[in-house]
Design a protein around this nucleic acid. Sequence first.
DNA 1: CTTGATTCAATTGTACACAATTTAATGGTT
DNA 2: AACCATTAAATTGTGTACAATTGAATCAAG
Lengths: 153, 153
Amino acid sequence: MERDEALKLENQICFAIYACAREITKLYHPVLKELGLTYTQYIAMLALWERDRVTVKELGERLYLDSGTLTPLLKKLESLGYVLRARDRSDERQLLIEVTEAGRALKEKAFDVPEKVFCRTGLPTGELVEIREKMTELIRSIHPAEQTPASPH
Amino acid sequence: MERDEALKLENQICFAIYACAREITKLYHPVLKELGLTYTQYIAMLALWERDRVTVKELGERLYLDSGTLTPLLKKLESLGYVLRARDRSDERQLLIEVTEAGRALKEKAFDVPEKVFCRTGLPTGELVEIREKMTELIRSIHPAEQTPASPH
DNA sequence: CTTGATTCAATTGTACACAATTTAATGGTT
DNA sequence: AACCATTAAATTGTGTACAATTGAATCAAG
């Protein structure tokens, strides 16, 4: 590629993904507002609805977020009544996150979020699945040290 | 799709893109550190190297960012000596952004940023181009009101 | 059983992101 | 000229993100 071409905005895959991520988040905003959640809070609840009683570290590996982001976010979710935060008795360094009854009730209201959002994109489902697979592949190739296959407890 | 499946994290295209965007940004961090820029500052400079003497509004449309993000960012770039901010004489509401000599000099140091970053992904170029095109397509379908084809001045 | 290294969450500091509001300048209407 | 709607950037307030550091708990020798 020519010298100047390499620095053009339209040729940056990073910018395409970065801009796309923010535009999609904006798409979620009005839908999630009805649930009283922000986008990141919603993503965290998705992870917790799937798998409960996990440590901050485990949740962070799942979401690619660190304690600097998760600690205030989980405190907020706790203040909203959707999760409980309690130290692990057998290892006081760890904090276990548990979804409350209200948190599980919220899931019922969340079931139609995905469809509400994606009827706004106007893209066929097949296209979206393909994009998701390519993104997942790209994350994997960036993040190779991903060999903690969530041991069944 | 089954009810629960629709809320699984691994099925969320939004999460795949969101996580990918953040991982890529982290990839840039050490490389951009040598230039003394953050990722968003770098993206803004890319846009300005291509097209100078634009208003905050024009730059924002290009980057999908608003004045709330751009005002402090551009003040920072000004304090670093890379841009000048000056009101448009013919319309004092507008602020014109101009790249300085030091800003243009910085471009010389930026030429090898893209390659430095993408030899870290380990993916073939063709794959990356395909992803970029799909992302651009997705942004367009989300953001249809994109009919301001940058009139030649 | 104590010392030193490691691990985990929390904290600190900086920099976005964006919705919503404010302020100032401009344009159009009467 | 006076008024009102519109426009552009700045400001305000909240919530991420993340690098780097801190502090407490645990683990691993010796």
